[in-house]
Nucleic acid binder design. Sequence first.
DNA 1: TAGAATGGGTTAACACTGTTAACTTAACGA
DNA 2: TCGTTAAGTTAACAGTGTTAACCCATTCTA
Lengths: 199, 199
Amino acid sequence: MSHADQSLRERILQTSRTLLYSQGHLALSMRSIAKEVGVSATSIYLYFDNKDHLLHTLIEESVEELSVFIEDKVLQATTVVDKFTENIRAYVEFALTNPEKYQIIYNVHPEAMSRYPKEKFRKARRCYELLVGFIEEGVAKGLMEVANPVIAAYSIWAQLHGVVSVVINQRLDNRIDRDLFVQESLDHIVQGFLVRSTV
Amino acid sequence: MSHADQSLRERILQTSRTLLYSQGHLALSMRSIAKEVGVSATSIYLYFDNKDHLLHTLIEESVEELSVFIEDKVLQATTVVDKFTENIRAYVEFALTNPEKYQIIYNVHPEAMSRYPKEKFRKARRCYELLVGFIEEGVAKGLMEVANPVIAAYSIWAQLHGVVSVVINQRLDNRIDRDLFVQESLDHIVQGFLVRSTV
DNA sequence: TAGAATGGGTTAACACTGTTAACTTAACGA
DNA sequence: TCGTTAAGTTAACAGTGTTAACCCATTCTA
Protein backbone atom coordinates (compact mmCIF):
# COMPACT_ATOMS: atom_id res chain seq x y z
CA MET A 1 0.00 0.00 0.00
CA SER A 2 2.33 2.73 -1.12
CA HIS A 3 -0.61 4.95 -1.99
CA ALA A 4 -2.30 4.54 1.38
CA ASP A 5 -4.71 7.44 1.49
CA GLN A 6 -3.16 10.25 -0.42
CA SER A 7 -1.30 9.74 -3.64
CA LEU A 8 2.45 10.02 -3.38
CA ARG A 9 2.27 13.28 -5.28
CA GLU A 10 0.00 14.78 -2.65
CA ARG A 11 2.16 13.49 0.15
CA ILE A 12 5.20 15.11 -1.41
CA LEU A 13 3.42 18.44 -1.69
CA GLN A 14 2.10 18.26 1.86
CA THR A 15 5.48 17.34 3.29
CA SER A 16 7.20 20.10 1.32
CA ARG A 17 4.77 22.62 2.70
CA THR A 18 5.25 21.42 6.27
CA LEU A 19 9.00 21.32 5.89
CA LEU A 20 9.00 24.77 4.36
CA TYR A 21 6.97 26.20 7.21
CA SER A 22 8.93 24.54 9.97
CA GLN A 23 12.50 24.59 8.71
CA GLY A 24 12.58 27.42 6.19
CA HIS A 25 13.25 27.12 2.50
CA LEU A 26 16.96 26.58 2.93
CA ALA A 27 16.26 23.18 4.46
CA LEU A 28 14.02 22.16 1.61
CA SER A 29 16.05 19.74 -0.45
CA MET A 30 14.81 16.89 -2.59
CA ARG A 31 16.48 14.46 -0.22
CA SER A 32 15.02 16.05 2.90
CA ILE A 33 11.53 15.87 1.43
CA ALA A 34 12.02 12.29 0.32
CA LYS A 35 13.39 11.26 3.70
CA GLU A 36 10.39 12.76 5.46
CA VAL A 37 7.96 11.10 3.07
CA GLY A 38 9.81 7.84 3.45
CA VAL A 39 10.73 7.39 -0.17
CA SER A 40 13.80 7.81 -2.34
CA ALA A 41 14.74 11.26 -3.57
CA THR A 42 14.43 10.29 -7.18
CA SER A 43 10.81 9.26 -6.74
CA ILE A 44 9.92 12.92 -6.63
CA TYR A 45 10.97 13.16 -10.23
CA LEU A 46 8.19 10.75 -11.14
CA TYR A 47 5.70 13.51 -10.33
CA PHE A 48 7.64 16.71 -10.82
CA ASP A 49 10.02 17.58 -13.63
CA ASN A 50 12.45 19.18 -11.22
CA LYS A 51 12.64 21.18 -8.01
CA ASP A 52 11.45 24.33 -9.72
CA HIS A 53 8.35 22.56 -10.90
CA LEU A 54 7.67 21.36 -7.37
CA LEU A 55 8.16 24.82 -5.91
CA HIS A 56 5.99 26.33 -8.56
CA THR A 57 3.19 23.97 -7.70
CA LEU A 58 3.49 25.06 -4.08
CA ILE A 59 3.38 28.69 -5.15
CA GLU A 60 0.22 28.07 -7.16
CA GLU A 61 -1.40 26.61 -4.07
CA SER A 62 -0.51 29.57 -1.90
CA VAL A 63 -1.75 31.99 -4.53
CA GLU A 64 -5.03 30.12 -4.64
CA GLU A 65 -5.33 30.30 -0.87
CA LEU A 66 -4.59 34.01 -0.85
CA SER A 67 -7.20 34.61 -3.53
CA VAL A 68 -9.87 32.70 -1.67
CA PHE A 69 -9.05 34.51 1.56
CA ILE A 70 -9.38 37.92 -0.03
CA GLU A 71 -12.55 37.07 -1.95
CA ASP A 72 -14.12 35.83 1.23
CA LYS A 73 -13.27 38.97 3.19
CA VAL A 74 -14.42 41.25 0.41
CA LEU A 75 -17.81 39.56 0.25
CA GLN A 76 -18.49 40.73 3.80
CA ALA A 77 -18.10 44.38 2.86
CA THR A 78 -20.95 46.43 1.49
CA THR A 79 -20.00 49.74 -0.07
CA VAL A 80 -17.43 50.07 -2.83
CA VAL A 81 -15.00 51.94 -0.66
CA ASP A 82 -15.35 49.28 2.01
CA LYS A 83 -14.70 46.52 -0.47
CA PHE A 84 -11.71 48.42 -1.79
CA THR A 85 -10.15 48.94 1.61
CA GLU A 86 -11.10 45.46 2.75
CA ASN A 87 -9.36 43.99 -0.28
CA ILE A 88 -6.20 45.84 0.64
CA ARG A 89 -6.49 45.05 4.33
CA ALA A 90 -7.14 41.38 3.67
CA TYR A 91 -4.07 41.11 1.49
CA VAL A 92 -1.87 42.41 4.27
CA GLU A 93 -3.66 40.36 6.90
CA PHE A 94 -3.08 37.17 4.98
CA ALA A 95 0.56 38.01 4.42
CA LEU A 96 1.27 38.87 8.04
CA THR A 97 -0.63 35.97 9.56
CA ASN A 98 0.72 33.46 7.04
CA PRO A 99 4.19 34.79 6.42
CA GLU A 100 5.45 31.38 5.35
CA LYS A 101 2.80 31.01 2.70
CA TYR A 102 3.37 34.54 1.56
CA GLN A 103 7.08 33.89 1.40
CA ILE A 104 6.41 30.90 -0.81
CA ILE A 105 4.77 33.19 -3.30
CA TYR A 106 7.37 35.90 -3.32
CA ASN A 107 10.56 34.81 -1.68
CA VAL A 108 11.09 31.21 -2.62
CA HIS A 109 13.51 31.07 -5.48
CA PRO A 110 12.66 34.18 -7.44
CA GLU A 111 14.80 32.74 -10.21
CA ALA A 112 12.41 29.82 -10.47
CA MET A 113 9.62 32.23 -11.25
CA SER A 114 11.13 33.68 -14.36
CA ARG A 115 11.61 30.24 -15.82
CA TYR A 116 7.94 29.40 -15.60
CA PRO A 117 5.04 30.49 -17.81
CA LYS A 118 3.26 33.61 -16.71
CA GLU A 119 -0.09 32.09 -17.66
CA LYS A 120 -0.01 30.16 -14.43
CA PHE A 121 -0.69 33.38 -12.61
CA ARG A 122 -4.20 33.60 -13.92
CA LYS A 123 -5.47 32.71 -10.49
CA ALA A 124 -3.47 35.47 -8.88
CA ARG A 125 -4.91 37.81 -11.43
CA ARG A 126 -8.38 36.89 -10.29
CA CYS A 127 -8.36 38.88 -7.07
CA TYR A 128 -6.36 41.54 -8.82
CA GLU A 129 -9.14 41.97 -11.37
CA LEU A 130 -11.39 42.27 -8.35
CA LEU A 131 -9.46 45.29 -7.18
CA VAL A 132 -9.55 46.83 -10.64
CA GLY A 133 -13.32 46.44 -10.60
CA PHE A 134 -13.67 48.25 -7.30
CA ILE A 135 -11.51 51.10 -8.48
CA GLU A 136 -13.48 51.46 -11.70
CA GLU A 137 -16.70 51.44 -9.75
CA GLY A 138 -15.31 53.93 -7.26
CA VAL A 139 -14.23 56.24 -10.04
CA ALA A 140 -17.62 55.95 -11.73
CA LYS A 141 -19.34 56.94 -8.53
CA GLY A 142 -16.97 59.85 -8.02
CA LEU A 143 -15.52 58.38 -4.84
CA MET A 144 -12.02 57.81 -6.13
CA GLU A 145 -9.72 59.64 -8.46
CA VAL A 146 -7.24 57.66 -10.48
CA ALA A 147 -5.96 58.04 -14.01
CA ASN A 148 -5.76 54.37 -14.95
CA PRO A 149 -7.49 51.74 -12.76
CA VAL A 150 -5.45 48.86 -14.11
CA ILE A 151 -2.17 50.57 -13.37
CA ALA A 152 -3.46 51.85 -10.06
CA ALA A 153 -4.36 48.35 -8.94
CA TYR A 154 -0.93 47.08 -9.85
CA SER A 155 0.66 50.00 -8.11
CA ILE A 156 -1.32 49.29 -4.96
CA TRP A 157 -0.32 45.67 -5.09
CA ALA A 158 3.34 46.62 -5.47
CA GLN A 159 3.23 49.08 -2.63
CA LEU A 160 1.52 46.56 -0.38
CA HIS A 161 4.11 44.01 -1.26
CA GLY A 162 6.80 46.47 -0.29
CA VAL A 163 5.24 47.18 3.07
CA VAL A 164 4.66 43.52 3.79
CA SER A 165 8.16 42.50 2.71
CA VAL A 166 9.80 45.02 4.96
CA VAL A 167 7.83 43.74 7.93
CA ILE A 168 8.22 40.06 7.17
CA ASN A 169 11.90 40.27 6.36
CA GLN A 170 12.41 42.19 9.57
CA ARG A 171 14.04 45.10 7.89
CA LEU A 172 12.02 47.47 10.00
CA ASP A 173 13.85 49.85 12.26
CA ASN A 174 13.77 48.84 15.91
CA ARG A 175 12.39 52.21 16.88
CA ILE A 176 9.28 51.70 14.78
CA ASP A 177 6.23 49.84 16.02
CA ARG A 178 5.25 47.17 13.55
CA ASP A 179 1.49 47.55 13.74
CA LEU A 180 1.64 51.31 13.65
CA PHE A 181 3.86 51.13 10.60
CA VAL A 182 1.48 48.83 8.78
CA GLN A 183 -1.55 50.90 9.76
CA GLU A 184 -0.06 54.20 8.65
CA SER A 185 1.22 52.71 5.44
CA LEU A 186 -2.18 51.30 4.58
CA ASP A 187 -3.85 54.57 5.45
CA HIS A 188 -1.53 56.41 3.17
CA ILE A 189 -1.96 54.00 0.30
CA VAL A 190 -5.74 53.97 0.59
CA GLN A 191 -6.23 57.67 1.27
CA GLY A 192 -4.12 58.52 -1.73
CA PHE A 193 -6.86 57.18 -3.96
CA LEU A 194 -9.94 58.48 -2.25
CA VAL A 195 -11.47 61.83 -3.00
CA ARG A 196 -10.88 63.99 0.05
CA SER A 197 -14.36 64.49 1.28
CA THR A 198 -14.19 62.88 4.67
CA VAL A 199 -10.97 64.60 5.67
CA MET B 1 53.84 39.28 -6.86
CA SER B 2 50.61 37.78 -5.72
CA HIS B 3 49.44 41.14 -4.52
CA ALA B 4 50.22 42.90 -7.77
CA ASP B 5 48.21 46.10 -7.61
CA GLN B 6 45.11 45.38 -5.61
CA SER B 7 45.14 43.21 -2.57
CA LEU B 8 43.67 39.76 -3.03
CA ARG B 9 40.74 40.80 -0.92
CA GLU B 10 39.90 43.63 -3.29
CA ARG B 11 40.29 41.38 -6.31
CA ILE B 12 37.85 38.88 -4.79
CA LEU B 13 35.28 41.60 -4.19
CA GLN B 14 35.71 43.08 -7.66
CA THR B 15 35.43 39.70 -9.35
CA SER B 16 32.38 38.78 -7.29
CA ARG B 17 30.69 41.97 -8.36
CA THR B 18 31.49 41.42 -12.01
CA LEU B 19 30.41 37.81 -11.86
CA LEU B 20 27.21 38.77 -10.09
CA TYR B 21 26.38 41.36 -12.70
CA SER B 22 27.18 39.20 -15.69
CA GLN B 23 26.08 35.73 -14.64
CA GLY B 24 23.51 36.32 -11.93
CA HIS B 25 23.78 35.33 -8.32
CA LEU B 26 23.09 31.67 -9.00
CA ALA B 27 26.43 31.39 -10.73
CA LEU B 28 28.28 32.97 -7.84
CA SER B 29 30.04 30.15 -6.07
CA MET B 30 33.23 30.26 -4.07
CA ARG B 31 34.88 28.10 -6.70
CA SER B 32 33.69 30.24 -9.62
CA ILE B 33 35.02 33.36 -7.95
CA ALA B 34 38.31 31.70 -7.13
CA LYS B 35 38.69 30.36 -10.66
CA GLU B 36 38.12 33.82 -12.12
CA VAL B 37 40.58 35.41 -9.71
CA GLY B 38 43.10 32.68 -10.44
CA VAL B 39 43.41 31.38 -6.93
CA SER B 40 42.16 28.43 -4.92
CA ALA B 41 38.65 28.52 -3.50
CA THR B 42 39.86 28.21 0.04
CA SER B 43 41.93 31.35 -0.25
CA ILE B 44 38.72 33.35 -0.05
CA TYR B 45 38.38 32.13 3.50
CA LEU B 46 41.56 33.94 4.38
CA TYR B 47 39.71 37.22 3.93
CA PHE B 48 36.07 36.34 4.54
CA ASP B 49 34.63 34.14 7.25
CA ASN B 50 32.23 32.52 4.82
CA LYS B 51 30.13 33.21 1.75
CA ASP B 52 27.58 35.19 3.77
CA HIS B 53 30.31 37.48 4.99
CA LEU B 54 31.49 38.01 1.44
CA LEU B 55 27.97 38.76 0.20
CA HIS B 56 27.37 41.08 3.08
CA THR B 57 30.45 43.06 2.21
CA LEU B 58 29.13 43.41 -1.33
CA ILE B 59 25.78 44.56 0.01
CA GLU B 60 27.47 47.18 2.13
CA GLU B 61 29.20 48.51 -0.95
CA SER B 62 25.99 48.76 -2.93
CA VAL B 63 24.24 50.49 -0.07
CA GLU B 64 27.07 53.00 0.07
CA GLU B 65 26.80 53.62 -3.67
CA LEU B 66 23.04 54.09 -3.46
CA SER B 67 23.43 56.55 -0.60
CA VAL B 68 26.00 58.61 -2.45
CA PHE B 69 23.86 58.64 -5.59
CA ILE B 70 20.82 59.91 -3.72
CA GLU B 71 22.73 62.49 -1.71
CA ASP B 72 24.25 63.81 -4.90
CA LYS B 73 20.90 64.14 -6.66
CA VAL B 74 19.24 65.74 -3.68
CA LEU B 75 21.93 68.40 -3.47
CA GLN B 76 20.87 69.68 -6.87
CA ALA B 77 17.32 70.40 -5.70
CA THR B 78 16.37 73.66 -4.05
CA THR B 79 12.98 73.66 -2.32
CA VAL B 80 12.00 71.13 0.32
CA VAL B 81 9.34 69.54 -1.85
CA ASP B 82 11.84 69.26 -4.67
CA LYS B 83 14.37 67.61 -2.42
CA PHE B 84 11.71 65.28 -1.13
CA THR B 85 10.55 64.17 -4.56
CA GLU B 86 14.09 64.07 -5.90
CA ASN B 87 15.07 61.76 -3.06
CA ILE B 88 12.28 59.40 -4.01
CA ARG B 89 12.93 59.69 -7.72
CA ALA B 90 16.65 59.12 -7.28
CA TYR B 91 16.05 55.95 -5.30
CA VAL B 92 13.97 54.48 -8.10
CA GLU B 93 16.34 55.72 -10.76
CA PHE B 94 19.27 54.04 -9.11
CA ALA B 95 17.35 50.81 -8.68
CA LEU B 96 16.13 50.67 -12.26
CA THR B 97 19.40 51.69 -13.88
CA ASN B 98 21.48 49.46 -11.61
CA PRO B 99 19.15 46.52 -11.10
CA GLU B 100 22.03 44.19 -10.33
CA LYS B 101 23.38 46.41 -7.60
CA TYR B 102 19.91 46.90 -6.23
CA GLN B 103 19.36 43.17 -6.30
CA ILE B 104 22.52 42.70 -4.30
CA ILE B 105 21.00 44.78 -1.56
CA TYR B 106 17.61 43.14 -1.47
CA ASN B 107 17.55 39.91 -3.37
CA VAL B 108 20.82 38.23 -2.74
CA HIS B 109 20.38 35.69 -0.01
CA PRO B 110 17.80 37.30 2.22
CA GLU B 111 18.63 34.63 4.77
CA ALA B 112 22.15 35.94 4.91
CA MET B 113 20.79 39.28 6.03
CA SER B 114 19.09 38.09 9.15
CA ARG B 115 22.27 36.46 10.31
CA TYR B 116 24.18 39.69 10.20
CA PRO B 117 24.18 42.61 12.62
CA LYS B 118 21.74 45.37 11.85
CA GLU B 119 24.28 47.97 12.90
CA LYS B 120 25.92 47.54 9.52
CA PHE B 121 23.00 49.33 7.96
CA ARG B 122 23.95 52.61 9.49
CA LYS B 123 25.04 53.83 6.09
CA ALA B 124 21.71 52.92 4.57
CA ARG B 125 20.07 54.81 7.37
CA ARG B 126 22.00 57.89 6.36
CA CYS B 127 19.95 58.73 3.29
CA TYR B 128 16.89 57.55 5.10
CA GLU B 129 17.47 60.14 7.82
CA LEU B 130 17.76 62.58 4.96
CA LEU B 131 14.22 61.78 3.90
CA VAL B 132 12.96 62.10 7.47
CA GLY B 133 14.52 65.55 7.60
CA PHE B 134 12.76 66.67 4.44
CA ILE B 135 9.42 65.45 5.71
CA GLU B 136 9.88 67.20 9.03
CA GLU B 137 10.81 70.39 7.26
CA GLY B 138 7.87 70.01 4.89
CA VAL B 139 5.50 69.53 7.76
CA ALA B 140 6.92 72.51 9.60
CA LYS B 141 6.37 74.68 6.54
CA GLY B 142 2.83 73.38 6.13
CA LEU B 143 3.62 71.78 2.78
CA MET B 144 3.12 68.19 3.86
CA GLU B 145 0.77 66.43 6.19
CA VAL B 146 1.98 63.30 7.94
CA ALA B 147 1.41 61.95 11.42
CA ASN B 148 4.85 60.54 12.08
CA PRO B 149 7.77 61.54 9.82
CA VAL B 150 9.92 58.60 10.86
CA ILE B 151 7.24 56.09 10.06
CA ALA B 152 6.27 57.94 6.92
CA ALA B 153 9.82 57.78 5.61
CA TYR B 154 9.98 54.07 6.26
CA SER B 155 6.63 53.59 4.64
CA ILE B 156 7.75 55.46 1.54
CA TRP B 157 10.86 53.38 1.39
CA ALA B 158 8.83 50.18 1.65
CA GLN B 159 6.39 51.26 -1.01
CA LEU B 160 9.20 52.24 -3.35
CA HIS B 161 10.84 48.93 -2.76
CA GLY B 162 7.61 47.22 -3.73
CA VAL B 163 7.26 49.17 -6.93
CA VAL B 164 10.88 48.64 -7.86
CA SER B 165 10.77 44.91 -7.05
CA VAL B 166 7.77 44.31 -9.22
CA VAL B 167 9.45 45.98 -12.14
CA ILE B 168 12.86 44.40 -11.67
CA ASN B 169 11.51 40.92 -11.05
CA GLN B 170 9.35 41.25 -14.13
CA ARG B 171 6.17 40.50 -12.31
CA LEU B 172 4.47 43.33 -14.16
CA ASP B 173 1.52 42.48 -16.33
CA ASN B 174 2.32 42.50 -20.03
CA ARG B 175 -0.49 44.94 -20.69
CA ILE B 176 1.09 47.57 -18.48
CA ASP B 177 3.76 49.96 -19.68
CA ARG B 178 6.71 49.88 -17.35
CA ASP B 179 7.54 53.57 -17.35
CA LEU B 180 3.94 54.60 -17.00
CA PHE B 181 3.56 52.23 -14.07
CA VAL B 182 6.59 53.65 -12.31
CA GLN B 183 5.53 57.22 -12.99
CA GLU B 184 1.99 56.79 -11.73
CA SER B 185 3.18 54.88 -8.68
CA LEU B 186 5.64 57.59 -7.78
CA ASP B 187 3.04 60.27 -8.34
CA HIS B 188 0.67 58.50 -6.04
CA ILE B 189 3.23 57.95 -3.33
CA VAL B 190 4.45 61.53 -3.44
CA GLN B 191 1.07 63.21 -3.84
CA GLY B 192 -0.28 61.27 -0.90
CA PHE B 193 1.98 63.28 1.37
CA LEU B 194 1.64 66.73 -0.10
CA VAL B 195 -1.01 69.16 0.96
CA ARG B 196 -3.38 69.50 -1.98
CA SER B 197 -2.81 73.09 -2.95
CA THR B 198 -1.51 72.68 -6.46
CA VAL B 199 -4.18 70.17 -7.49
C1' DT C 1 73.96 33.44 11.10
C1' DA C 2 70.84 29.39 12.45
C1' DG C 3 66.36 28.46 13.87
C1' DA C 4 61.68 29.48 15.04
C1' DA C 5 57.51 31.69 13.92
C1' DT C 6 54.32 33.59 10.87
C1' DG C 7 51.57 35.13 6.68
C1' DG C 8 49.63 33.57 2.61
C1' DG C 9 48.64 30.38 0.18
C1' DT C 10 47.87 25.19 -1.28
C1' DT C 11 45.54 20.22 -1.84
C1' DA C 12 42.46 16.72 -0.17
C1' DA C 13 38.47 15.65 1.81
C1' DC C 14 33.61 15.79 3.92
C1' DA C 15 28.94 16.23 3.68
C1' DC C 16 25.79 18.27 1.23
C1' DT C 17 23.01 19.73 -3.29
C1' DG C 18 19.95 18.69 -7.95
C1' DT C 19 19.68 15.44 -11.42
C1' DT C 20 20.22 11.35 -14.67
C1' DA C 21 20.77 6.54 -16.11
C1' DA C 22 20.14 2.01 -15.37
C1' DC C 23 18.04 -1.35 -12.79
C1' DT C 24 14.30 -3.96 -10.17
C1' DT C 25 9.88 -5.51 -9.16
C1' DA C 26 5.08 -5.94 -9.15
C1' DA C 27 0.67 -5.71 -11.67
C1' DC C 28 -1.97 -6.30 -15.75
C1' DG C 29 -3.60 -7.54 -20.57
C1' DA C 30 -3.51 -10.74 -24.53
C1' DT D 1 2.60 -17.52 -19.86
C1' DC D 2 4.75 -13.84 -22.08
C1' DG D 3 5.31 -8.85 -22.91
C1' DT D 4 4.43 -4.41 -21.42
C1' DT D 5 3.96 -0.90 -18.38
C1' DA D 6 3.97 1.62 -13.98
C1' DA D 7 6.30 2.81 -9.88
C1' DG D 8 9.82 2.61 -7.52
C1' DT D 9 14.88 1.67 -6.49
C1' DT D 10 20.36 2.26 -6.27
C1' DA D 11 24.52 4.25 -8.05
C1' DA D 12 26.63 7.83 -9.89
C1' DC D 13 27.93 12.65 -11.68
C1' DA D 14 28.99 17.21 -11.18
C1' DG D 15 28.43 20.82 -8.43
C1' DT D 16 28.07 23.33 -3.69
C1' DG D 17 30.18 25.49 1.10
C1' DT D 18 33.51 24.48 4.31
C1' DT D 19 37.38 22.40 7.17
C1' DA D 20 41.81 20.26 8.23
C1' DA D 21 46.27 19.55 7.19
C1' DC D 22 50.09 20.89 4.81
C1' DC D 23 53.71 23.77 2.20
C1' DC D 24 56.80 27.42 1.61
C1' DA D 25 58.91 31.85 1.55
C1' DT D 26 59.71 35.72 4.47
C1' DT D 27 60.78 37.79 8.82
C1' DC D 28 61.97 37.97 13.72
C1' DT D 29 64.88 36.54 17.26
C1' DA D 30 68.65 34.15 20.07
